[in-house]
Amino acid sequence: MPLTRPNQELRRDLQGLASDLKWSAVELMRIAERLSQAGNEHDAQAVIRICQVMQAGEDRLSTYGDEVKAGRIERNGNYIKS
């Protein structure tokens, strides 16, 4: 069954947010590497922990997008129901 337009938009939004988190985590990992190379290991490790949280969020958003595609989550007007 094809997705309704609101569900297509929801899935696209979730995928976009997941992509933004992934890009941000990659950039932060580069910063962490530079911090580590500069001898600031404490801050580098803090940034890496932030990246891990962001990557977990990315995974959740991607899973939600898959659930929208499978019809387990749908947008109904301004509300999302599962």
Rank of each mutant, 00 (worst) to 15 (best):
33 E>A: 10
19 S>F: 14
79 Y>T: 14
71 G>K: 08
13 D>Y: 06
12 R>I: 12
72 R>G: 08
1 M>S: 11
26 V>Y: 13
69 K>E: 12
70 A>K: 07
81 K>D: 15
51 C>T: 11
38 A>F: 01
39 G>L: 03
28 L>F: 12
57 G>Y: 06
66 D>K: 15
71 G>S: 05
47 V>N: 01
3 L>C: 02
19 S>Q: 14
49 R>C: 10
15 Q>L: 13
10 L>K: 00
72 R>P: 06
53 V>M: 12
23 W>H: 13
50 I>P: 09
10 L>N: 00
49 R>S: 11
73 I>M: 01
51 C>E: 07
68 V>M: 01
77 G>S: 05
68 V>G: 00
62 S>R: 09
81 K>L: 10
74 E>C: 04
9 E>N: 11
7 N>R: 05
78 N>L: 15
26 V>H: 12
74 E>D: 08
43 D>T: 15
44 A>M: 07
21 L>P: 01
16 G>E: 02
11 R>L: 03
72 R>H: 14
62 S>E: 12
61 L>Y: 00
47 V>D: 01
49 R>D: 14
67 E>C: 05
19 S>D: 15
19 S>E: 13
46 A>W: 06
75 R>F: 02
50 I>K: 14
75 R>Q: 09
10 L>A: 02
13 D>G: 11
78 N>C: 09
61 L>V: 02
77 G>Y: 07
31 I>N: 07
55 Q>N: 10
54 M>L: 10
62 S>M: 13
35 L>Y: 06
61 L>M: 02
43 D>C: 11
39 G>P: 04
54 M>C: 15
71 G>Q: 08
